[in-house]
Amino acid sequence: MENKTTKIQVLGSGCPTCKKLFELTKQAVNELELKTEVEYIADIQKIIEMGVMQSPVLAINGKPAITGFLPDVKKIKEAIKKFI
C-alpha cells in the first residue's frame, strides 16, 4: 500500500483502555502494512489542546479521529484509511 506521511498518535491518561487502544492501533497499522510508527502520548494537556476532553484519543495527522471509547481493529483501520 502506498504510504504518504501519516502521523498516527494515541493519546491517553495512562488508563488501561488507553493502552489497549495503543496496542490495537499498532496491530491495525501492521495489518495495513503501513510504515508508520504509532506514537503514544500520556500528556493530558495535549488532549485538551486538541480540543478533546475524553480519553483515549486516536489522532491522525494531529486531528482526533476516534475519541472516548475503545473501538475494534476494523474501526481503527477504517479511520486510518480515510487519511491515506
Partner: peptide
C-alpha cells in the same frame, strides 16, 4: 494554558451511533 472551545470532532453516522451505544 487557555484554549478555544471549538472542536472539530469526527462526525458520527446513525449507524455508528447505534454501534457506539451497543458497545457501550
Amino acid at each position: 494554558n487557555t484554549i478555544n472551545g471549538n472542536t472539530d470532532l469526527p462526525k458520527m453516522s446513525q449507524k455508528e451511533r447505534i454501534a457506539y451505544a451497543k458497545n457501550y
